[in-house]
Computed example of a mutant assay.
Amino acid sequence: MRTEPKLTRLDRVFARLDREPERPAHIDVPKMSRHRIVLLAATLAFYGAIVWAVIITSWLVRLDWQVMFFRPYQQWSEIHWFVDYYVVLGQRGPTAVMVAAWLGWRSWRQHTLRPLLALGVSLLLLNITVGAAKYGMGRLGPHYATVIGSNEMWRGGDIFPSGHTANAVVTWGILAYMASTPRARRWLSAVSAVTSLGVGMATVYLGTHWLSDVLLGWAAGLLILLALPWFEPLIARSEARIFDLRDRLRARRSRTASAAVPVGAPHVVVTPLPADRDDVAAGSHRAPVYLAPGPHTARSERTPISPTGSRRPPHAERHPRGSASSARPLTGG
């Protein structure tokens, strides 16, 4: 008796991934080109300029206070309901779930774990860099500001840079990063940039962030996307280790299943029992009734026989075709 191992849902997923072990040829993996390095350096300089302008309480801080006193949520109160919903596009939980679902489908179709691993690496970098900057500079938000005209730095806050804006840049920008063609990447990059800036301006409208928070958050998210090609070798190694671990677990499971069935176990062959003991003594095996042994007879002369018996009731008056039959009584005059 042979037993087949029962596949789990995870085994079926990996079996789907194994159908095409090589990444499709049309998938373009971004590389750390000279153009990308220039953009990274420019964004890093912009990041440092924003931080320096806030630290020295420059014109940017004065602009922050002017926007706060303008109170956009009171000036345009009719769009408050829309902004409350739109700002959700920058929250970590909902956006991560939506983007992970899409990239999971991409992983299924492309037979690779790279989209999900790239999303995980980008979110990890986002938590480390933006979280460290928030708690390191400790800036208070507009609703908690104490001194008019102050930069409100190093006072125990966690508002600088804007986490909503940085999260929107990374989560929606990763879709552009994982695009299959350069043209799709350009279009998705523009859409993600507009979406993330809209999320940042929504936080300014609601009064939860300074304008400089939004600018720094946008730069922080862009730095992560621009630096992501440096982590492609790590993503590739992680994918290879995951598949290697899968192979070892599968081999261990197959060894366990083979150990459960002893090698060389006799196969049990079930044969039909003879009809009576006389046949056993004679050494012959009587064929089952439904095989209809004997000389060939006409179809009209045979009674349909099934393993459970005849399905046609016996008729004493029935005669085979072609045989002489008794004379029928004549009717009529």
Rank of each mutant, 00 (worst) to 15 (best):
N167E: 10
R328C: 05
R16K: 14
A118Y: 01
R106N: 02
A240G: 13
G333V: 08
D11A: 11
L330W: 04
E317V: 07
A236G: 02
E4M: 07
D247K: 08
P233K: 13
R62S: 04
T146M: 14
S212M: 02
A281L: 15
A282L: 15
W105S: 00
S212A: 07
E78F: 12
T181I: 03
Q74K: 08
L140M: 11
I305Y: 11
L17P: 05
W52N: 11
S306C: 02
H319N: 02
R318Y: 12
I55A: 12
G221R: 04
A324D: 10
M153C: 01
K6Q: 11
I235M: 08
R321Q: 11
T171D: 09
H315W: 14
F231W: 08
P266L: 09
G332R: 05
T95D: 09
I128R: 01
E301K: 12
S284A: 03
K31W: 10
R246W: 06
A287G: 09
G136Q: 02
V54H: 05
G141P: 00
P5W: 06
F70R: 15
R71Q: 14
V87I: 05
R19H: 10
V269D: 06
L291R: 07
D276N: 15
F14Q: 00
G120C: 05
A281K: 13
D278F: 10
Y135E: 11
P72W: 08
V289N: 13
G264F: 07
R302Q: 14
M1L: 15
A100L: 04
A118Q: 02
S300E: 14
V83L: 10
R183C: 01
M32D: 09
